[in-house]
Design a protein around this nucleic acid. Structure first.
Lengths: 249, 249
DNA sequence: TCGTTTTTGATTATTTTTGATCAATATAGA
DNA sequence: TCTATATTGATCAAAAATAATCAAAAACGA
């Protein structure tokens, strides 16, 4: 069986069952698990499925969950260090954009006592900050209940009515080729937020570096700084483009 | 079953039932309780649910807005009748505005199975309708924690980007002098919603008739129809202005 | 047929997930 | 308020899964 046909069959099974299992596929196609993993990896890069530990799941019609990657591990301490560093960039009176990613959400615990204004498309962020010193604005538009976030043309338009001193965004991958996302919706929001702010920070753990997903949405220099736990060496390509590296190490 | 799929299923159950139980999930997924607890912990970290002792609950507004408190069962029944009537004015495909008042909120229970689009500035409405047939848009702007609603200049501006077939609003009082509100913020939103829709319904129980609050924000003919449990006689002044009366009596 | 490219699979070190254990904490009931 | 019971999550180890590396096999095209 050739690899193209095998991938077609994987997608057909996925469409039917909603999920596929690496081990079971290997048995069924009489091939090795590593071969199946490669297939799944390629299909995920092409945006055809969502990779999970041990297999893959179907992309939901509205949105793609975050792909699993074996090197994606970030313990909470490292992630929190990134967020603490991010919070330290904020001073009283700032107006900041926050996108709907999980890392950005974790910033909330560190900014509750700052007298700032937060503009966000994330309902969890809204909820987390509502009884704090922070003044809140929500971006209007289409509500996505899976992500508990607001997206869409209306949202992008609304963002254009705002201007922030700083924006905090996350991406699904970053390489010398640029910034990558799985979701066009989130990419569009991140782009709009960066465009409408004076200074944009990318919160990016080590696991996301060197990863190219199916959708490049911007060049690395869309952002002004990257806050990361990664080795600076890994981000040399960003420095070359004038992007500042803020390391937690 | 892999962990990511399991988390998705947990969220789906949570969306459907409002709460989940650790022990039951462990049995259902044929896994250990500690595994479920980890899942729940991770989901809570991402802001997707609220952990409880023995399980988790759906994130709902921290508190219902202060003006949502029920006075008497009679009032409640009357309001429900008004809302039922209001819901009956909606047909498939409608795009409707809903404001952040308590009476309008009560409409939610009657419209969950309509294939319509709702545009609202109310967070409780958002939460109530998010797992229904209704497609949701939220109006962006300043978040008011007390009212769990979105107000302000930005909100008014954003409303102007929309156009709805119908708007459903409430007021604090109505008399021959016009429509009254306690809050300038809410008045401005109601005004904007009415202006941007083809047909505006005012939901108004008998207790509000003849009441003039501190702020008149519009003439009675801002709205096209009033849905009420009051005696039609009491609203003669509206008929004179060409406002249709839809009675629940 | 032959050289080149692509695909495959084994190996191995690394990463992720899982479950048992147990002390600490929370809850329920008298 | 106190006591008994239920639940929790840190810790640790085992199991499962992963993908980089390398070499071999298969496929492809001139």
């Amino acid at each position: 069986m050739n690899s193209q046909l095998r991938k077609q069959k994987i997608l057909a099974q996925l469409a039917a069952a909603g999920e596929v299992d690496t081990k079971m596929l290997a048995q069924e196609f009489n091939t090795s698990e590593i071969t199946i993993r490669r297939d799944l990896h390629q299909l995920a890069d092409d945006g055809m499925l969502c990779r999970t530990h041990g297999g893959a799941i179907k992309i939901t019609p509205l949105e793609m969950p975050h792909n699993f990657s074996n090197k994606a591990a970030v313990n909470q301490v490292a992630k929190d260090n990134i967020c603490r560093k991010a919070a330290a960039q904020i001073k009283e009176g700032d107006i900041i954009f926050m996108d709907c990613g999980s890392t950005v959400f974790r910033m909330c615990q560190f900014i509750k006592n700052k007298r700032i204004k937060v503009i966000t498309n994330s309902i969890p962020v809204l909820y987390e900050l509502q009884n704090s010193q922070v003044s809140l604005n929500i971006i209007g538009g289409e509500f996505d209940s899976e992500r508990q976030a607001i997206h869409g043309k209306m949202a992008e338009e609304h963002i254009r009515s705002y201007h922030a001193t700083k924006a905090f965004i996350g991406v699904d991958g970053i390489s010398s080729h640029g910034l990558f996302a799985h979701s066009e919706k989130e990419a569009a929001i991140a782009l709009a937020l960066a465009t409408q702010s004076d200074y944009t920070y990318l919160l990016c753990d080590a696991g996301k570096i060197g990863k190219a997903s199916y959708m490049k949405f911007a060049d690395v220099d869309l952002v002004n700084a990257i806050i990361t736990n990664a080795d600076k060496e890994e981000l040399k390509f960003c420095k070359k483009k004038g992007v500042k590296i803020i390391s937690t190490e």
